[in-house]
Design a protein around this nucleic acid. Structure first.
Lengths: 184, 184
DNA sequence: GACACATAATACGTTTCGTACTAGTATGAT
DNA sequence: ATCATACTAGTACGAAACGTATTATGTGTC
């Protein structure tokens, strides 16, 4: 069983870095670039319960720091497996078109869990799918009739440019993970 | 009263171009670059009912084309007002960070409804907010400690590049709407 | 007239999340 | 000493939004 939402994977990924409480997790979502995930308690706490019900995380109460008990969660072995499985999914066209953010989240969370080779594979297929999609968008643009509305044409160009920027990024990132250099 | 979801505004915008049935609308979402809105009946029809309940669109049955009655919707005067109000909202930082797609949708739907001057105002503030956010992201990047994980640093750069691409686009688009040239 | 296919929509259930609320703890001010 | 405030931590409730499955009608064609 795997998380049902992207939020679930995000939580799993954060908990893999270090055990945290629901409150800690809310703070991460409220204050870091991961901010576009909801930090409302109505999102986080139920999601944690779902993960726990599925046996992907386990909770334990910590009293060492203060009188106030703090319930921290950490992924189970099963949770780590689920997370790794998600991280190594192939990059599909659909992902690129509809879930670009999710792909970037996946990349971020690969840090401790995937080998350099796996990261490279990810970036390569990411770049490939992006370039293919950019080509498709360009064809769509050329297929537009001359009388097509200016607004629509420009909006299409905006999308194209954005995907192009991502493709460039992926290739640059790939060079940073070249097997030659171990650091930097 | 205004639509509660972006989907509502998208529907309102499409209906403003020409009256359509729920089925027509689903086809638009299934076959055009607006594809990342759901085209499932469970999304469209309830949304249309919501709009109707709020008095933003009105439905009428058309039998001219075939025996099969076809229920088409069109925006009411109130609906047009709501749409125009949405289109002319100021571009906030929050929009840029969390609802970039929505801003592009807004731009696309301005075609028939906003003056050239209004479009220019939109693009100007869009570019301004984007550039401000890019500057912020760059500061965040510089603030990263040297030992920050490579994955995180790169993911941040990806975001920065994407917003930068949008900013460039906005400025190019602005030049296409310069008040000098009336066409092209 | 029977079959497939396009059109058009309903019904139902589930998931997910936002808001409002509760409550204990540490801390600085008065 | 106590009061207000901010921080930590979470529960409860409800409603919105959507996906899947299903229904039903019209149209062309073999």
């Amino acid at each position: 069983m795997t998380p049902t939402t992207t939020l679930g994977f995000a939580l799993l990924g954060l908990l893999q870095e270090r055990p945290r409480s629901g409150y800690d997790l809310r703070k991460v979502f409220a204050t870091t670039p991961m901010a576009h995930y909801s930090s409302s308690p109505g999102a986080i706490y139920p999601a944690l319960r779902r993960l726990q019900r599925q046996g992907l995380i386990s909770g334990s109460v910590d009293r060492s720091q203060s009188l106030r008990p703090k319930k921290t969660f950490r992924p189970t072995a099963k949770g780590i497996r689920a997370l790794k499985g998600w991280l190594s999914r192939p990059v599909t066209r659909e992902d690129v078109v509809f879930h670009l953010d999710e792909l970037l989240l996946r990349f971020s969370l690969m840090a401790g869990l995937q080998s350099r080779a796996q990261t490279r594979r990810f970036l390569k297929s990411f770049a490939r799918e992006l370039e293919a999609y950019v080509a498709e968008l360009q064809q769509q643009r050329e297929a537009l009739r001359a009388d097509a509305p200016l607004h629509g044409r420009l909006a299409l160009e905006c999308g194209t440019e954005s995907y192009r920027a991502h493709a460039r990024w992926a290739k640059r990132a790939l060079s940073r993970f070249s097997s030659k250099q171990k650091r930097q």
